Simulated assay, not measured.
Amino acid sequence: MSVVCEGNVCRLVFPIDHWTQAIMQDELKFAVVCSSNMNRSMEAHAVLSRRGYQVKSFGTGDKVKLPGRGNKPNCYEFGVSYKDIYNDLLEKDKEYYEKNSVLNMLMRNKTLKPCPERFQDSTDRFDIIITCEKRVFDQVVEWFVLKKPEQNKPVNIINIDIKDNLEEATLGSYLILDLATKLTESSDYKKELHSILKAFQRKCRKHVSDCIMFY
């Protein structure tokens, strides 16, 4: 830390840390995608955004689904706010949804963005899309296959299988952070992607799928 004075105004200047420097070197745009944009993608969204990465998160399902009593899920449309979903579950059964940590998850989510978003409805463009299960990976790839490329801009789609529970979502978010760090620190991630993923797969002991599609 140092002090810089300009005229009568002095300000503290903090050194650029490892994470910030990596982002400044190559500002990749990341998307993290799961089924409902509730648990796995939002946990990774939170972790990556705290590190300064350009990241958005999405779901690919027809509905947003949350666990309910008796194996009957609570279903909502994409676009219904996390706040409204929180209030709905609070009214239905506060004790149950506090106990299974769904209310805490929704509290976290609404600090990051207003509502769950569906990937297929997004007009954003990304350099890297990371999916959290093979079925979601297939849905994202299918969307690109059915969509006629307009810009011929490549995007790398990478899948890491993460179980849809709170503990695995937390662990998975740091795996995604580790991969994002390796890609960002690479001098040319497109040329080095194969070796990066191979080393990552050995380290995390999870099967990793990847492909290139085009916007």
Rank of each mutant, 00 (worst) to 15 (best):
M38Y: 05
T123I: 11
K163C: 11
I212G: 09
I16W: 14
M107Q: 14
T20N: 09
V208D: 12
L197G: 01
D121C: 11
E185G: 06
K110H: 09
A46Y: 04
F137Q: 09
R135D: 10
V64P: 04
S209A: 12
P114Q: 02
I212K: 10
Q25W: 05
Y97K: 05
M38K: 02
S187D: 07
K72Q: 12
A199G: 06
K190M: 04
Y189D: 05
F14V: 07
S187F: 01
G68K: 09
I158Y: 03
I23P: 05
K147I: 03
I162S: 01
R125L: 06
E43P: 01
D84L: 02
L193G: 00
I23W: 08
A44S: 07
C10V: 12
G172E: 03
G70N: 06
C115E: 02
G70C: 07
Y174G: 00
R69F: 12
R135H: 11
P73F: 15
I196Q: 00
S122R: 09
V136D: 02
M105G: 03
D210K: 05
K203R: 15
M213G: 02
E43W: 04
S186N: 03
S49Q: 11
V4K: 15
I160S: 06
D121N: 14
S35H: 07
K148D: 10
A31Q: 06
L90V: 11
V55K: 02
K198R: 13
K182I: 03
K206N: 08
I128K: 03
V141M: 09
E192D: 14
